[in-house]
C-alpha cells in the first residue's frame, strides 16, 4: 500500500494544527498523572496509604524489626510491657511485639493472595459472560448465583478443615470462593462497554476476539475492578482473622493477628492483661481501615476519567 502525498487544502490544515500542537504542548497530562493528582488530594486516602505502606515495610523487614524470634520462649510468662519486651509476653512467654510483627506477613499474604486469585477468576468469567452473552452468560451467571447463595463462613470453615488449616490453603479457599462479586461487577461493565463504538470499530477492523476483550474492553473496566479489589483485601484480612480466631486459620505456634486474639477469650486476660489483645486488635483495625481509605480515594480519583 502506498499512500500518495497530501494535496493543497490539506497542507494548510496540517500547518494550522501544527501550530496548535506547539501551543498546547505544555498542557499535556497523562491519565495516570491525573489520577495520581486526584488521589493525593484525598487526605484520608493519603493517610491510609502511609499506614499501609508502613505495614508492608514491617512485613518485609520483620526480621530486622522484631527483637526476638516469634516462637522463642523466654523465662517470663504473661509479663507486662517492659524495656526488653515492648508489649509484654504471652502465656507461654513469647514476645508479643515480635509475634505481632511477624503476624503482619500472614494478613498481608492472605489479603493480597486471595484477592489476586479471585480477581483473576472473576474478571475472566465476568468478561466471558458479558461479551458472549446468551448461553455462556446464562451458565456463568447461574454458577455465580449458586456460589453466592452458599453460607460463606460455613463453607470456608468446612473446606479449610477438610484440606487442612494453613496459610496457603486459607488463601486458596478465600480466593476460590470470592470471585462471584467480581464476576458480576465485570459482567456489568463489559455489557455496557461492548456497546461502545470503539469496540464495534475493533470488530470492523478485524481484531481477534481475545484482543478485543483483553485490550479494548477490560482496560476500560479497570477502575471498578481495582476499587473492588482494594476493599476485597480488607475483607480477606478480616476473614483470615476470624478464621484464626475460630481456630480454623493459621495454626499455632505460627502467629496471626486472629489467633493472637483468641487469648482474649479468657476473662482474666480481657480485664488485666490488655497488652495481649489490644495490639493485635488494633493492627487489624488499622490495616483494614487504611485499606478502605485507599479504596475510597481510588474510587474518587478514578470515577470520572475525562473531566480535569
Amino acid at each position: 500500500m502506498s499512500l500518495p502525498n497530501i494535496n493543497e487544502p490539506l497542507t494548510k490544515q496540517s500547518l494550522e494544527s501544527k501550530t496548535l500542537v506547539m501551543e498546547e504542548l505544555g498542557k499535556e497530562e497523562s491519565y495516570l498523572r491525573l489520577v495520581t493528582r486526584r488521589f493525593f488530594k484525598h487526605k484520608l486516602a493519603v493517610a491510609g496509604l502511609i499506614v499501609f505502606t508502613l505495614i508492608i515495610l514491617m512485613d518485609i523487614f520483620a526480621q530486622v524489626i522484631a527483637p526476638h524470634h516469634p516462637n522463642a520462649v523466654s523465662d517470663t510468662f504473661e509479663a507486662a510491657p517492659s524495656a526488653d519486651h515492648l508489649l509484654g509476653t504471652d502465656q507461654v512467654g513469647r514476645d508479643v511485639f515480635s509475634r505481632l510483627v511477624y503476624a503482619s506477613r500472614v494478613s498481608i499474604t492472605v489479603g493480597l493472595g486471595a484477592v489476586a486469585i479471585y480477581v483473576a477468576i472473576g474478571t475472566v468469567l465476568g468478561a466471558l459472560a458479558g461479551y458472549f452473552g446468551k448461553w455462556v452468560d446464562n451458565i456463568i451467571m447461574r454458577v455465580t448465583d449458586v456460589f453466592m447463595s452458599f453460607p460463606y463462613l460455613m463453607v470456608i470453615l468446612v473446606l479449610v478443615s477438610v484440606i487442612g488449616p494453613n496459610l496457603f490453603n486459607i488463601t486458596l479457599v478465600l480466593g476460590i470462593l470470592g470471585w462471584p462479586q467480581v464476576a458480576r461487577l465485570v459482567r456489568g461493565s463489559v455489557l455496557s462497554i461492548k456497546e461502545m463504538d470503539y469496540v464495534k470499530a475493533g470488530v470492523a477492523l478485524g481484531y481477534s476476539t481475545p484482543k478485543i476483550i483483553f485490550q479494548h474492553i477490560l482496560p476500560n473496566a479497570f477502575a471498578p475492578i481495582l476499587v473492588n479489589a482494594t476493599f476485597g483485601v480488607a475483607s480477606a484480612i478480616i476473614m483470615e482473622a476470624s478464621l484464626s480466631f475460630l481456630g480454623m486459620g493459621v495454626r499455632p505456634p505460627a502467629a496471626s493477628w486472629g489467633n493472637m486474639l483468641t487469648q482474649a477469650q479468657s476473662l482474666t486476660v480481657l480485664s488485666s492483661q490488655p497488652w495481649l489483645w489490644i495490639p493485635p486488635g488494633l493492627m487489624i483495625l488499622l490495616s483494614v481501615l487504611s485499606i478502605n481509605f485507599i479504596g475510597d480515594g481510588l474510587r474518587d480519583a478514578l470515577e470520572s476519567n475525562q473531566s480535569r
Binding site: 463504538d197 470503539y198 470499530a201 475493533g202 476500560n220
Partner: peptide, 29 residues
C-alpha cells in the same frame, strides 16, 4: 470494507494513544 462512526467521542478507545490506535489495524492484519 471499513466503517466510520457517528459519535467521535465513543468511537476511540480512551485508554489508547493515537499512535497505537492507528498502528493496531496494521499489526492485526
Amino acid at each position: 470494507l471499513q466503517i466510520i462512526f457517528q459519535d467521535p467521542y465513543s468511537s476511540l478507545n480512551p485508554r489508547k494513544r493515537i499512535g497505537d490506535l492507528l498502528a493496531e489495524p496494521l499489526r492485526a492484519h
